[in-house]
Nucleic acid binder design. Structure first.
Lengths: 227, 227, 227, 227
DNA sequence: AATGAATGAGAATTCATTCAT
DNA sequence: TATGAATGAATTCTCATTCAT
């Protein structure tokens, strides 16, 4: 239970964890990278049943490995959750960094963030789910281990807000961090209702665009009212 | 399995459970009413440690009763959580109904909802926390039992949004239910970060007012731009 | 848990416990002799559910008293069972002593014992049931406390067998105690099947007479074959 | 809820469980077969202390396994008892079927049944005890789950009685089923007194032969008086 | 004497984790 | 590496018994 969230063995640990569309789609998915297989299985099962209502053996079954095998790749069930979190949020952050750098306006950036967290991009629904799921589980875990990673994500959002404020396109009377949390929460709130029945993709896209309108409407500087 | 599912005793069950500012603050807190004492203790401990990381015995200790006593008032640990949820959300709903009826504009109503859920009213911080905690843990519980209550709360928010749209003060190009979820999520997102360190009251009030500005900014009809 | 099987308070303890047809039918049954009421309730509930599957509160409910009241008359749940046993077997023994003294032949005596234990006499089904029930419960209890009483009952049967052997009407190549146990067991075996569905009185009487024939046939001296 | 209700593992489950004198005595007793080891331990401990006075942990200890292991082979403590019952009575039935087919006269068959149930054959004392114990405890269990198995055993005895009646060697004025119950009860009554102090083998054999004499004397047709 | 709410020791069961194969 | 049977610590819940009223 030391701070580091990765377990010791970690046999086939991939070197490149950053971009979303990397090796994942190729080698990892196809070959037997057990670690990745377990992580994928974990997302799915945790999403459906919640962390505490999921037995390690259920993850193992979903991953098609033996119970004991999980422990060759992860120190403990807790560590599995943390690894999941760090791995996925890490990917999100990397993606954000890359995508956002390509966009000019803070507004465009915010839009992209929304789309990304809602998981409507390139079939990486997992990413979106994982964030929502994990944040929704173990308080303790979140507080004690995952907070830095989580805060890094919020900071990335806050940075875009700050940028917009500096440029005068976003209102300056709100704290960027508060806004970041609110945005995260709003997106998360939408994702939450999926737990009560998954939506079709169409609905998702509509939600994304309405949310963009809503959030940008709220954050946009009243001065730039022209729109 | 709804609220009415207690075991035998349930002595002196209070008839009036609805309003926030009622006797709760006086008699109930100090004297007997074990059921209420247990609920209060549960909120506190669940909030601090999370539902699954809390032992029934810890709730008992916090409530100053014996372990077994919990089961005189609640069928199981799960039922305790559900009762908590229904009881507290029930209060929130009752409060909303009463308070909101007194206000004229949808904008004022929305503001009040925000303040209420953030728990800055009359020290009922619990209320906000409980919602956040429960919604955040136990997917299953939420999905299977608490969903109706939760949806009722979202509907109450959505109703205000609809009203504003009918009156022309809120933009009509967004789904009231989506907005309701987003608002709930945003508020919840703020509450979540409390888990990473409780804020002082001052910060809370500032958050509330900024959030109101943000949300109203987002929802306000562009036509009513006069502001 | 001392040897004595009666509890301390025992407020209205009746002085006369021996004959079956005594005050029971009058005062005790009609007035509020709680001790007796509890015993009766206990027989009934233990018979239906078994000792270990019966909660003290269930006995209390069946007796129409409060849980705590049981403990004013009996030291513990175990003691309640023992008291039941001793009280009822005591009555059986007293009855046997009286009835049997009036009969001449050992054969008649055995017949009467059979009828008595099968409970077809004077509506005192309770008595028969109690024996079967109690013997069927707690091994430990039986072994440690009730054995003397139980053995006294078996001895009473064995005495009749001995008498018959001395008179030459019963075969002498079997141990009277073995016979007593077998007879007890056979009767008990019949009673047991009642647990799987109570019989009508007619069936009972037929059973009794067939059993008498069977047992007397088995025990009767081959020499006295004339019959 | 029948026998087939185990949890996952159930490793090397033996295919041949029926006959008494099979591999049980060799491999099973000495080596692995945890299921059988647990069953054996359970018989022993239940016999000594009674089902309800035995902790699962005591069975585990007696079987030399961990507490949890019990639950790898049996769903619950209740199921363990039932499995025991069905397994052992199943063996008795199988044994009866086989042995009895080899004997000619109903009298011989009855004798064999008596010997068998008294457990004087091949050290399988367990068999007799288990029946007695189970039938003696847990009314509910017996009534709800074990009744069919139990009745099958009684029926097997009754069938022999019927056969004797058809052949004219057994008296026809008694119900075969009543006789079966009485025989079972008589044997059970003997076994019961073991609870009050185990007998030496010699006494047992004598009991068996006396009981045979007694029972056959009772059941034998008066016409076939020649003897 | 009677009540029944409260108590808390005790037991069954679960499940993360280990380890012999 | 991989397996999955075995482990036993940990936790929920029950219920006999007590005791303030």
């Amino acid at each position: 239970m030391s701070e580091g969230s990765f377990s010791k063995p970690r046999p086939g640990k991939k070197a490149s964890v950053h971009p979303l569309e990397d090796a994942d789609g190729s080698a990892a998915k196809r070959t037997g990278d057990k670690r990745e297989r377990i992580l994928r299985a974990a997302v799915e099962v945790f999403a459906r049943q919640g962390f505490y209502n999921t037995r390690v053996s259920e993850v193992a079954k979903a991953a098609g490995v033996a119970d004991g095998t999980i422990y060759l790749y992860f120190e403990s069930k807790d560590q599995l959750l943390l690894s999941l979190f760090e791995d996925r949020i890490g990917k999100l952050l990397a993606y954000l960094a890359k995508e956002i750098a390509l966009l000019d306006s803070p507004e465009e950036k915010l839009k992209r963030i929304i789309e990304l967290q809602l998981g409507i991009l390139d079939g990486e629904r997992d990413l979106a789910e994982v964030v929502t799921i994990i944040v929704r589980q173990s308080n303790t875990l979140l507080r004690e281990y995952a907070a830095p990673t989580f805060i890094a994500y919020l900071d990335a959002i806050a940075a875009v807000v700050s940028e917009g404020q500096r440029e005068g396109v976003f209102r300056s009377d709100v704290s960027p961090h508060l806004v970041a949390r609110a945005i995260f929460g709003a997106l998360d709130g939408i994702a939450l209702t999926w737990a009560l029945g998954k939506p079709e993709v169409g609905a998702l896209k509509r939600s994304a665009s309405q949310l963009s309108a809503l959030i940008l409407g709220g954050i946009r500087s009243p001065l730039s009212a022209a729109r």
